[in-house]
Amino acid sequence: MTLTTRPKADKRPPEKNNVIPRKPRSRKRGNAGERTLRNTVIIVIGASLLLLTAYPIGLAFVGSFHYWNPLSGAFDFIGLENYTDLLSSGEFWSSLLRTGVFSVVVIFFRVALGLAIAVAIFSNLTRGKAIFRTIFYMPTVTPLVAVAYIWQMMYNPQTGAINTFFGLDINWLYDPNFALPSIIGMTIWKDFGYAVILFLAGLHSIPEDALEAASVDGANAWQRFWSITLPLLAPMTVFVVITSIISYLQAFVQVLVLTQGGPGTSTQLISYLIYEQAFVKYDFGYASAAAFVLLIFTALLTLISFRLSAGRKNSLEG
């Protein structure tokens, strides 16, 4: 939400500021120092953007039209072949679909759990708020590689805590029906706390007057929640959803550690497929083409979420 509102304010014509007498005076005073600092920042950020982002994106784009293999040194123009191969590959589409399922399920639980737990912690009825807050956020600050290994051992069919505790006999990571759900479960455990903290922040920023006025008007707790709290949390929900979409489309470490995409291709997410094409098979061109398709999907989904939230905001205000 911040992204949409802030830059607009910046478009204010700078001349206007000259009307305020305070500004030009300070300008004169801080002039040289201000300019040095400003130019340093512009140059450093500019160089970093050009060298480490713009140039690589350009190279990846060009590379996606080439047969590009760093081991053999090949960089041969093949037109759209990488793209046609990619778009006609069942493996690509199924991994994209799988990534969609993975993301939707994880985001759903992240938002639902995050919201429910945040509301529960926020409630006056809860004791020990600070402890809960600290605990729920712990998995989020834990390194993902290590978390994946903990869960690999939790999922172990013979000695793992899950089968032992529930008396089950499921080979979680090696059964095609359970492998993806296992990765989803681990990811939800790791990430729900982030949503808890953000929703708690959102709850704290809701003006108490609004809720009080509603209860004076006779609204009960549920009505207040549905018609005041929830709509006011909408921007935060959008923020959580967008950041989640971006990060889950790129999810890869949990797959690498837990299943390497298997059994079969049952846990092959799109980013893992790209990793394998690029750094196991060293088909850089094909991997770049896939990465670009991923970029387009990320951009489209982010844009749609922004649009949906903007439309919603307008309808609330109007």
């Binding site: 830059p7 982002t53 994106i57 790129q250 850089f284 951009a299």
Partner: peptide, 25 residues
């Protein structure tokens, strides 16, 4: 605004896009 926009925009780019060229660089 442009500088800030581009800087923030880098957050949206999947690692998969830039990592291959960066690797070769």
């Amino acid at each position: 605004g442009l500088l800030f926009g581009f800087t923030v925009g880098t957050m949206m780019i999947p690692w998969a896009v830039t990592i291959i060229p960066r690797y070769t660089m």
